[in-house]
Design a protein around this nucleic acid. Structure first.
Length: 157
DNA sequence: GTTGAGCGTT
């Protein structure tokens, strides 16, 4: 058995990939009509359970919808239900695709920054970007590698 | 109200 892939050998925390997203409260909705609003989505998806939030992704310059959105349920079970039932449904003339989101949130750009070396062993440093939201995805890798560049890009450094 | 695959930095 030359290439047995043992589950124990992998360090990486399991996260869903593009093809098989893990069940999760956040649903990605794709293929939307440009005229579908967050209110519309809320109306449709609230049939399956309480919604925490809905956000359509807009193009930065044109301000138009990019045709996809994220719907946050309060319960995973409702999210599962909604994913099953709403996937492939027609909305404003378009067939929409619904899946569990693989990402959680847009990146929160600027916390109060620590200029020092990123020390991920110490749990203190994490409060800057820890507050508030559901992290969960691969935030550790994300931040550890590139946050200095990110801030430079933003002109903070 | 053009186009259509897409996982996001209001």
């Amino acid at each position: 058995h030359s290439h047995s892939h043992s589950p124990m050998s992998t360090r990486r925390r399991h996260v869903g990939n593009r093809a098989n997203p893990d069940p999760n409260c956040c649903l990605g909705v794709f293929g939307l009509s440009l005229y579908t609003t967050e209110r519309d989505l809320r109306e449709v998806f609230s049939k399956y359970g309480p919604i925490a939030d809905v956000s359509i992704v807009y193009d930065q310059q044109s301000r138009r919808s990019r045709g996809f959105a994220f719907v946050y349920f309060e319960n995973v079970d409702d999210a599962k239900e909604a994913k099953e039932r709403a996937n492939g449904m027609e909305l404003d003339g378009r067939r929409i695709r619904v899946d569990f989101s693989i990402t959680k949130r847009p990146h929160t750009p600027t916390p109060g920054i620590y200029m020092g070396r990123p020390t991920y062993g110490s749990s203190r440093r994490r409060d800057y970007y820890d507050r508030g939201y559901d992290r969960g995805y691969d935030d550790r890798d994300y931040y550890s590698r590139s946050y200095r560049e990110m801030f430079m890009t933003l002109g903070i450094l």
